[in-house]
Amino acid sequence: MPPKVVLVTGVSRYLGGQLAAVLAADPAIDRVIGLDSVPPSREMLAALGRTEFVRADIRNPLIAKVISSAEVDTVVHMNIGTAPGGAGGRASMKELNVLGTMQLLAACQKAETLRRLVVKSTTTVYGSSSRDPALFTEDMDARAVPSSGYAKDSVEIEGYVRGFARRRPDVSLAVLRFTNFIGRHIDSMLTRYFSMPLVPTVLGFDARVQMLHEQDALEVLRLATVENYTGTVNVGGEGVLLLSQAIRRAGRIPVSVPVPLVGPLGGLLRQTGVADFSPEQLRFLNFGRVVDISRLIDDFGYRPRLNTAEAFADFCAGHRPVIDPARIRALERRLLRVATLNRIQEPVDA
């Protein structure tokens, strides 16, 4: 049974806004209510269609009134910030993420009309360490439990969500653990990282990175909202890229930084506003993280249209490379002709 009234938190961000827009375009849904503490951009507002925008903080007790008066039956919680920069410092980011979620869940618990809750979580709950298995399944726990930042917030949020599920067993719950997002439009940690002309990496480490295309992320969120999957599921593209490989594919220049300098460099980039990477994101650059998505494909019933490499290629197509692969090919051809005295004209392909 499709939902009648959907509340989406965090609609001023890219994915939240897109989801609200898609839901608003679905005639089977009566009302879509969008919530955020900051107003959406003008383009976003145009795309939102018939979504009713409520400018409120999820920590505001008024949320309970909104939910009960509109008889919301489905809540999609996406208002979880990933970087302290956008939220005005780590303390307020944590307040918004963890206390905001608690408040929202408290309001949800009181809402008699509520039937379904969808939470956008993240695979950072698995942490990132040298002792990690190659792929995480949903039943595995982090080998090194995240102790700071977004990852720690997400672990706590999932804990509160489990508590809510115990108290309201009549509400069906889907927890979506997303890998890193990539695409032309979305603004994510990785899109900012791969947009830098010189990309810092950790010397002697090459993380395996799994990415999910923004359109696939949106489709999974929509299916989770309108259908009835219950449980926790990893959501990511198939396959992996090595960090160094991805940097090359994006036509960027990797700069290897020795381990002791990684922290100070991250701080410098943060202070100068070039990039905002938290310590746990820097750790991610060492070891990366890959999750098993067989539950997504078999149980949830969705296979991402683009795998990691294809999703990344779409991102690269939208960004001008610093080093154009075509120029490397041209250089190869020239070198080849000189070196083989014109006996071989064209490069060999594997």
Binding site: A134, L241, I247, R248, V290, I344
Partner: peptide, 24 residues
């Protein structure tokens, strides 16, 4: 032939044009 294959290998490394499995 070997020069050509060596250059092709260098190009694949510089453009990231190779495959890895999920174990890396």
């Amino acid at each position: 032939e070997r020069v050509a294959q060596g250059l092709a290998f260098l190009r694949r490394r510089l453009t990231g044009d190779f495959e890895v499995d999920e174990f890396g």
